[in-house]
């Protein structure tokens, strides 16, 4: 982790109709940092990740990623982002490998041989090589999630946005994913949303608690305890 800011969020708000999903959120995430977003359902975690992933435009506020304005340089920024959503982005009628090849074509990747090498390496690391020629619709949710993670990582993104990556995974898949995040974090900025406090403490450098669209508190990994998080969840402004 360095002192250089990779994601700089200033007074970010997002409104859907009359409802605020995010209210005046300001946050700096450092390069190489694993930052966890905690918060109850509907607190704005997914909206924040969607805005960072250029899927949703903010109502107001500014985001700079490595000094580039997100609104003005969406296409360039998408080159460096890997976004794993709660629901899979994979085509159900295509196989895992076909899906990964399709998505990888849009990134500035070098030769086909190297790309195939990277696909094989990721499939092996996530222990899904034997299912690579199966249509996605035939796979369990956990396996689909792992293939979706390969899609997210195929272009070696410098910023990873993971929206509840451990949800609906069995213990084995969750452990593989957790170990994988630990191994690949070198040089990457990772933002993860989760409900799991113990897991957050074990993988993050810092975390933030969102409640009703407001960033209530930013803290170091060591300061996260179930009691402190619960107290912040329940605190009324």
């Amino acid at each position: 982790m360095t002192d250089e800011t990779s994601i700089d969020i200033e007074n970010l708000s997002k409104r859907y109709g009359y409802t605020y999903a995010l209210r005046d959120v300001s946050l700096q995430i450092l390069q190489g940092e694993v930052f966890v977003l905690l918060g109850p359902n509907g607190s704005g975690k997914t909206t924040l990740l969607k805005i960072l992933g250029t899927l949703v435009s903010p109502t107001s506020g500014k985001i700079n990623i490595y000094g580039q304005d997100l609104k003005m340089n969406g296409r360039e920024i998408r080159q460096m982002i890997g976004y794993l959503a709660h629901d899979s982005f994979l085509y159900r009628d295509l196989t895992g490998v076909e899906n990964i090849r399709f998505y990888s074509q849009f990134y500035n990747l070098s030769s086909k041989g190297k790309l195939q090498g990277r696909i094989n390496e990721l499939l092996k690391l996530l222990k899904i090589t034997r299912w690579k020629h199966e249509p996605i619709k035939n796979l369990s949710r956990g396996l689909q999630k792992r293939f979706d993670l390969v899609r997210t990582l195929i272009h070696d993104p410098t910023i990873l946005l993971l929206d509840e990556p451990f949800s609906s995974l069995d213990v084995l898949s969750a452990n593989i994913l957790k170990e994988f995040i630990g191994n690949m974090r070198e040089g990457k900025t990772i933002v993860i949303s989760t409900h799991d406090i113990a897991l957050a403490r074990s993988i993050c450098d810092r975390g933030g608690i969102l409640v009703e669209g407001r960033m209530r508190q930013v803290f170091k990994s060591s300061d996260i305890t179930s009691a402190s998080v619960k107290a912040i969840f329940e605190r009324r402004d």
């Binding site: 899927l55 296409r75 360039e76 629901d87 899979s88 982005f89 085509y91 998505y103 849009f106």
Partner: peptide
């Protein structure tokens, strides 16, 4: 409906 529209939207293309 399949959720793949967001997969297209996060691609670095216009």
């Amino acid at each position: 409906e399949q959720g793949t529209i967001n997969g297209l939207r996060v691609l670095p293309t216009s």
